[in-house]
Write a protein that binds this DNA or RNA. Sequence first.
DNA 1: ATAAAATGTTGCATATATACAACAAACCAT
DNA 2: ATGGTTTGTTGTATATATGCAACATTTTAT
Lengths: 88, 88
Amino acid sequence: MKSRKLYNRISVLRKERNISRKELAESIGVNIQTVGYLEREEYNPSLDLAFKINEYFGLPIELIFSPEPLKPLSEEIIELKNKIGGEK
Amino acid sequence: MKSRKLYNRISVLRKERNISRKELAESIGVNIQTVGYLEREEYNPSLDLAFKINEYFGLPIELIFSPEPLKPLSEEIIELKNKIGGEK
DNA sequence: ATAAAATGTTGCATATATACAACAAACCAT
DNA sequence: ATGGTTTGTTGTATATATGCAACATTTTAT
């Protein structure tokens, strides 16, 4: 199926929480290099691994992974604020 | 990583919408047998394929796939109704 | 009742994800 | 400045997802 490259926010989320790759890798039960590959977006996680990552961070899959390049979280926040402001 | 078996609602969603496997397979760009394997839960989709499926149905990934066995949608509705009713 | 379409299943080939080991480079601490 | 942790990277091996072909079984329409 020639699968698309997917984008993710793993490294950002990891840094926000001050977690090392080693910690994350052990928590989700994969090799540390696997986390490296994922952060560099050199390959896509399996769906199961994506679920483990979203369980670990407590966030929906769509917030962590996307077929479209991901904006910085800071930008998303501004856009959401504008959207809410505009509705009033 | 010995990945977990995941559960999904593909066949239910497909029937709700009266779509054949062939139609679904062509729409998401995979082989018809691949849809069969997924519906029988003989293997998990890649994350990319999961995204294509959720784009096709217009539903979040978590509503279609889950690491836990999925209840019938009808039951979920009852539970949601109870939850809303109880909040009043 | 028959044919056509849809589904189930299997086998083999290929692509992709993951494990694991090794090592270099960058980054903190003291 | 030295050493320890973290990160980046690469190579090889294995597991898993997907493609594709073939055929049996079930369902649907006429």
